[in-house]
């Protein structure tokens, strides 16, 4: 340390400056977390498996093979079921459907929930009261029953997976709205939001620039939880017969079909079950990594 020139002395020496744009810093923070990186890789592999796999695998999910009830072998790595369907092909297709539904639900429900929750928390008073009563109302619906009825009404159409996804989204957004509202309520009172208002920012600009970014931690956790619950809800619906309809398939439907065979042909139960757990786990770790990476305070090592 040298004697500092007093005229410059008010400012401490600058710490090494980090990258200028936010994206590399964000990526760097994400990449520092090994578990999240591993989860992301596994998840990408699942996507390849689900979307590319069916194109290259010799069997199709809706074509009977000559082999019935075969345990896993080189020809049928996941075995076959009693009708002769190749389980690997079915799990690929099922994973594809389940992931589509889960991501759709996670994204739409989160967007609706985040916007509605931010509005309620930011404006408070009457807006809050009205929105939160609607939220309460939706939350008390017995979701599986409602979903069953709605899905039943649209059964048999070509795009039934998307119907199920919409139904599940409409039932799931209030969960996100509740957590985002409580975060927004706190944030709306902070001095930086006051400062933005004082600088002439519009409500929309404050919500987009301050409330939502600062709720990202809450929101990513919500996306993660929703992805996992959407997979499970889809599974329950399909299991009950109100979900994805044959000949199309999903992980839930595969498990439903396998229930009678759990003793005799366990492979047709275990493989879809394994993928459900894998998707839920990886999405949870990815969400955790995202939450940390989105927070600039996690950088620079020494947390203050």
């Amino acid at each position: 340390m040298t004697v500092t020139d007093p005229s410059l002395s008010l400012v401490e020496a600058a710490v090494p400056v980090q990258g200028r744009s936010r994206m590399p810093a964000f990526l760097r923070r994400y990449l520092r977390n090994r578990v999240s990186v591993a989860a992301l890789i596994v998840f990408l592999l699942i996507l390849v498996f689900a979307f590319v796999g069916p194109m290259v695998w010799k069997y199709s999910f809706d074509v009977f093979t000559d082999d019935n009830s075969q345990p896993p072998s080189l020809d049928h790595p996941f075995g076959t079921d009693s009708s002769g369907y190749d389980t690997l092909a079915q799990v690929m297709r099922g994973t594809q459907r389940s992931v589509q539904i889960a991501l759709f639900v996670a994204l739409t429900a989160t967007i609706i929930g985040a916007v509605v929750g931010a509005l309620a928390g930011y404006y408070g008073k009457l807006v809050d009261a009205v929105i939160m009563r609607i939220v309460d109302l939706v939350l008390v619906f017995p979701s599986v029953a409602v979903a069953a009825v709605l899905a039943y009404m649209s059964m048999g159409t070509e795009t039934s997976w998307i119907t199920i996804a919409i139904v599940l989204s409409l039932l799931a957004w209030p969960i996100v709205a509740r957590v985002v509202r409580s975060t927004a309520l706190t944030l709306a009172g902070t001095e930086y939001v006051q400062a933005a208002r004082g600088a002439g920012a519009t409500d929309l600009s404050i919500i987009v620039r301050h409330l939502i970014p600062n709720s990202m931690g809450t929101i990513t956790v919500a996306v993660t939880v929703l992805t996992a619950t959407a997979i499970l809800s889809e599974t329950s619906l399909s299991y009950l017969g109100f979900g994805v309809q044959p000949p199309d398939t999903s992980l839930g439907l595969l498990i439903a079909n396998a229930q009678a065979a759990i003793i005799t042909r366990p492979w047709i139960f275990y493989f879809p079950g394994f993928f459900i757990i894998l998707i839920a786990l990886t999405s949870s770790f990815i969400g955790d990594g995202l939450r940390r990476a989105l927070d600039p305070r996690q950088s620079a090592g020494a947390g203050s």
Partner: peptide
């Protein structure tokens, strides 16, 4: 009002809550 706000600005008490932690 939003235009006029620029002409009168406020400095807040708590330097830990008056800056958005997610903004550079």
């Amino acid at each position: 009002l939003r235009v006029m706000r620029r002409r009168i600005q406020m400095v807040f008490q708590d330097p830990y809550s008056s800056l958005d932690p997610r903004m550079s």
